[in-house]
Amino acid sequence: MSEGAERGPVATAVRALALAGGAVLLATALLTCFSVGRRWATSQPVQGDFELVSLGSGLAVLGFLAHGTLRRTNILVDSFTTWLPRPVVAVIDAGWMLVWAAVALVLAWRLGIGAAETLRSGTTTMVLGLPTWWAVGLGACGFAMVALAALHATGRLLRGEEG
């Protein structure tokens, strides 16, 4: 499903973000293995491993969303629209993609505000005392990229480059 060879700056950026998310996920897996090993050997797990795993997998998922959008891996049901001609279907799909872009923009905006408020309130994580605001802020960036990817996909659908 992932032989995505799309070119262009948007596709490249989205893919880079997804790969960064994947790298974070791999790092999270490595950290967990290390923590399990330490727990087994010295009965002292890595301090705050739960927090780091939640943070790592959360950031990875946020990095993945734009790629999923651009590759259009969302689950949709086409049984009721099989009789429609392909161009019409493409227009419908483009319409929903545009809605998704709008939703993602709203979410990016709200997460941006959430990040600013978290920064002001000085909230940190429980064990390591890491500030939370920047992670929420990265969430805003992730959804902004989703919006960009969705707009890009809308254009491609309307130009008939996908079906």
Binding site: G58, F64, L111, G114
Partner: peptide, 26 residues
């Protein structure tokens, strides 16, 4: 609703229990 959405996507995704999903997929 807009207030509810301020941090919800972040806290939903950054949860320890859910982290098992991307890891099993990977």
């Amino acid at each position: 609703l807009l207030n509810y959405l301020k941090t919800t996507p972040y806290f939903l995704f950054a949860s320890y229990t859910l982290s098992v999903i991307p890891l099993f997929i990977l």
